[in-house]
Design a protein around this nucleic acid. Structure first.
Lengths: 107, 107
DNA sequence: CGTGTAAGGAATTCTGACACG
DNA sequence: CGTGTAAGGAATTCTGACACG
């Protein structure tokens, strides 16, 4: 149940390629990081590394910006969504706990 | 049926990251390209870009080299495997053709 | 607020070559 | 054959700042 970090989540893409993939300028990409919307890895040397998931997220962000949504609002939306996901994750764990308690192996 | 080039096949990783991912030196990676075992993309600027599939292939190659197999042999193995895949692909297409001829929609 | 740009520096990558073997 | 390395150059990326608004 580790969902072993697939290729989609490996941070290996440099900003130049991300710029091509998303159509965003490097300036924009760095700015969204400054606003805490995106979190690239920073290996030795200081360069930024992004995942494909980051690229998708950046495209979502770009769409919202185009719709006039401010970075601050986008950040709030993101934390709302994350909260929902976390809660669902907890619910799933609790239900699984119940199942294990009722039907699981006992030593 | 286009199998739309997933993340695994997108050539977006630079040689430094590939080196870290595979444990191979950049020299080795470039040499295997010289021997036609691997084919990175070369965008403007001349830098090499690899996919996750390339990374996996490089690790296979590294294992064979360690076993004392020469690059020339590895290349032959690879073309043998590719040939088999191509033939299977053709067979599948032919069978599908038969199915379509017998049961497919006719105008 | 979000983005462009010029500035100077640091890190990355490239090629061709010499070396060992 | 496969790989290391020093060499010089070109392309990439980084940061902090000024600009517009």
């Amino acid at each position: 149940m580790e969902s072993s970090l697939s290729y989609k989540d490996k941070k290996v893409i440099s900003i130049g390629v991300v710029s091509e993939l998303t159509g965003l300028s490097e300036r924009q990409i760095r700015y969204y990081e400054e606003r805490k919307l995106i979190f690239p890895e920073r290996p030795k040397g200081g360069s930024r590394k992004y995942s494909f998931a980051d690229v998708e997220l950046l495209m979502d962000i770009a769409n919202k910006i185009e719709d006039g949504v401010q970075t601050h609002e986008i950040k709030k939306e993101m934390s709302r969504k994350k909260k929902t996901e976390d809660e669902q994750s907890i619910r799933k764990k609790m239900i699984q706990g119940q199942i294990n308690a009722q039907f699981g192996l006992r030593k």
